[in-house]
């Protein structure tokens, strides 16, 4: 744990804040949880940088996938889960393809996002998708312009999906409710209002 400075000048306390990493900063189960959810071997990372070098997001942001893997190894759960860069992975899997240690860094990121969601850290757009699917079965639902175009093409206005067969939607809602996903999405979105 960082040692509090307690200086009378709060600004100085912040500027000179203790920045040591100490072993007690490590969250004991973080690595284990990341590896279980991501089904990969984060602890085998030797920090070569192949992942960041492969990453389309790295050259245009401060997102460094290598650092997230390091945080997994060192148990730096808070740093990892509260870093907004966590959501800049496009899941292109180039790092996973090239990792010489046969780790799947992309799946480490996915696991961390899952853990962040448990703490209700999640960008709004992800939750909007959940709400759309709960309602229609589609992440990108049909609309009137499209319906007209479909008919022009000789297709039915509604595709052969939940859009046409609404009787399947309760099944989808049951699955999402099983995990409490809709309620949680509503709740988080409401809090953010």
């Amino acid at each position: 744990m960082a040692k509090a400075k307690g200086y009378s000048d709060e600004n100085l306390s912040v500027r000179l804040a203790d920045r040591y990493y100490r072993t007690e900063d490590a969250s004991p189960d973080f690595l284990k949880n990341v590896e279980k959810i991501g089904m990969t071997i984060a602890h085998m990372c030797y920090q070569c940088g192949t992942c960041t070098g492969s990453c389309p997001s790295a050259p245009r942001s401060s997102y460094r996938i290598r650092k997230f893997v390091r945080r997994a190894v060192l148990g730096l759960e808070n740093d990892a889960l509260t870093d907004p860069d966590l959501w800049l992975c496009t899941t292109c899997y180039s790092c996973t393809d090239r990792c010489p240690r046969d780790i799947a860094p992309t799946d480490i990121i996915m696991a961390m996002r899952n853990l962040a969601f448990k703490r209700e850290i999640v960008p709004r757009n992800f939750l909007n998708t959940v709400q759309f699917i709960y309602k229609t079965g589609h992440g990108v639902p049909n609309n009137d312009v499209n319906r007209a175009a479909r008919v022009r093409l000789g297709l039915e206005a509604e595709p052969e999906t939940t859009a046409k067969y609404a009787e399947f939607i309760p099944g989808i809602q049951k699955i999402l409710d099983h995990y409490g996903l809709k309620d949680k999405a509503d709740e988080i979105l409401a809090e953010g209002q």
């Binding site: 999640v122 998708t129 052969e160 999906t161 399947f168 099944g171 989808i172 995990y179 996903l181």
Partner: peptide, 29 residues
Amino acid sequence: LPLKGASCCPAPGAFGSIDLKVWYAMAAR
């Protein structure tokens, strides 16, 4: 052939990021 009643796959980025278990279950349906 039409696959009647299919839904969103569901979107691997959005759903996988939130909870992989939901992603598995929804795709399995």
